[in-house]
Design a protein around this nucleic acid. Structure first.
Length: 501
DNA sequence: CTTGCCGGGTT
DNA sequence: AACCCGGCAAG
């Protein structure tokens, strides 16, 4: 069940390969990728939402691929934004290349989709601007439907991403959001005019608090942004939740390379974000203190309750001792270290329970050479293991095979229904997805179809299995389910859900 | 409703 | 160190 987590797990490493995507992706696609990224930055709403409410002291900042020379930044780029205050301040974009997985050579050879982001001659900049896009959508670069749909869906008619070759004014920084509250306090604009000197400082401070810096988009979010429109178009769905479910499945169905692409994008976004807001912390977004308190209280309550429950309804599964044994190797963190998180398994990277540890504990995944080799080498091409055609095909197959699994997600234990693999090919993906979405509304109806979920991705949060599942890995899978999960695995449809806590 | 990320807390 | 929890990101 490794595949997924490992793959994405290697944004860095995988990214290096994926970055080169060259082999797998056409140039057009790469261009498309560029668009994706660009739009991902530019399409965020703040401007659209409350453009005029932005305080003068909080200049709009944009991500842009505008030509930029480190030593000769445009005047308007001289400012950066203080992470906590949102107050403009001199930018000093650190060189992100050190972190960038792609070797310079590689980048040079093949135009990286993120080329504009890669500090080759210039560094990514976020020009401060007050204007929007002046140019209509660059049709010349509209290389694929997905991108066009993406863009059209993400940009208001009047706001279209600038052609990278154009010297545009750029767009407001997507991550900076002025809370609605500000609208009322928009008087700040006015008051700032009539305000006295004494209030200036205050205003600034107020502004600090007002500004909300959004989190950078993660890989999946980026993927969602790109694909949502597509899905919406293909399906007749409107509900975001349903769309998301489909997107989630598609995401898992993506090949490693494809996912890696998004991980890479996300990584860039984070880097960029951190450059822009050096001290930015997700924690700053909200009233951390209050939340923390609330959380703590809630937790305490839950703990108390669960304790009581367990006394009355002891759960055998939960009471089971950790599968780990003393011979088990270190977990990802200890094994690879903090500086090699790309080698960590997904959960570890998410600060979740290490799956390799559990799996590897036994004889299955532990040895990196055997089955584990696959596990331990995320970036390795799936094709090497998958006898079937291309990873893409197997992927799509995988996707089709478990289109109605939405309601099965909660399953914690891997489900293996090898016999179902031989099932007749589904009519069409879209149809299935539609039905899946529909099924989500009527869980009962989809229950029988849920069996189609042959992927052991079952545990939705455990992406590390889709690929492996597509290629029956009886040895490892069965080994795990039988030898390691005696008490839980037997459950056919895994009734063990999150609720059982 | 989705996945990924991350801070903070707990064990 | 390992892990859990909860919140946030978009729509």
């Amino acid at each position: 069940m490794y595949p997924r987590d490992g793959a994405p797990a290697g944004p860095e490493e995988t990214g290096a390969k994926a970055g080169v995507l060259g082999p797998g992706l056409s140039l057009l696609q790469q261009v498309g990728c560029w668009h994706l990224n660009l739009s991902s930055w530019s399409n965020k709403v703040p401007v659209v939402q409350h453009p005029h409410h932005v305080h003068p002291l909080t200049p709009l900042i944009t991500y842009s691929n505008e030509h930029f020379t480190p030593g000769n930044p445009p005047p308007h780029l001289q400012t950066d934004v203080d992470p906590k205050t949102g107050i403009p301040r001199p930018p000093h974009p650190p060189d992100i290349s050190p972190y960038y997985p792609l070797s310079p050579g590689t980048v040079g050879q093949i135009p990286h989709p993120l080329g504009w982001l890669v500090p080759q001659q210039g560094q990514p900049v976020y020009p401060i601007t007050t204007g929007g896009f002046r140019h209509p959508y660059p049709t010349a670069l509209t290389v694929n439907a997905s991108m066009s749909s993406l863009l059209s869906s993400r940009f208001p008619p009047h706001m279209v991403p600038p052609h990278h070759s154009l010297h545009t004014t750029g767009i407001p920084h997507p991550a900076i959001v002025t809370p609605n509250v500000k609208q009322e306090s928009s008087h700040s604009d006015i008051s700032s005019l009539d305000s006295s000197k004494q209030s200036d400082g205050k205003k600034v401070e107020e502004k600090k608090k007002e500004v909300h810096i959004k989190k950078p988009l993660n890989a999946f979010m980026l993927y969602m942004k790109e694909m949502r429109a597509k899905v919406v178009a293909e399906c007749t769905l409107k509900e975001s939740a349903a769309i998301n479910q489909i997107l989630g499945r598609r995401w898992h169905a993506l090949s490693r390379e494809e996912q890696a692409k998004y991980y890479e994008l996300a990584r860039k976004e984070r880097q960029l974000h951190m450059q822009l807001y050096p001290g930015w912390s997700a924690r700053d977004n909200y009233a951390a203190n209050q939340q923390g308190k609330r959380k703590k209280r809630k937790r305490e309550k839950q703990q108390a309750e669960s304790n009581e429950r367990r006394e009355y309804f002891p759960n055998p599964c939960l009471s089971l001792p950790p599968i780990t044994d003393l011979s088990a190797p270190k977990k990802c963190r200890a094994r690879f270290g903090l500086d090699q998180q790309n080698n960590w398994c997904g959960p570890c990277r998410r600060k979740k329970k290490c799956i390799r540890y559990i799996q590897g504990e036994g004889s299955c995944a532990s040895p990196p050479s055997t089955d584990g080799s696959l596990l331990d080498s995320p970036p390795s091409s799936p094709s090497s293991v998958v006898p079937s055609p291309s990873s893409k095909e197997s992927k799509s197959q995988t996707e089709q095979m478990q289109p109605l699994s939405l309601t099965m997600k909660p399953a914690h234990q891997p489900l293996h229904h090898p016999h179902l693999l031989a099932g007749p090919p589904p009519p069409s993906l879209v149809q299935l997805e539609n039905s899946a979405a529909a099924a989500s509304k009527t869980p009962a109806a989809s229950s029988h179809n849920g069996a189609l979920e042959h992927r052991d991705v079952s545990s939705s949060r455990q992406p590390g299995s889709s690929v492996a599942s597509s290629m029956a890995r009886p040895s490892a899978s069965l080994c795990h389910s039988h030898s390691l999960l005696p008490s839980t695995a037997p459950q056919p449809l895994s009734l063990v859900t999150k609720s059982i806590e």
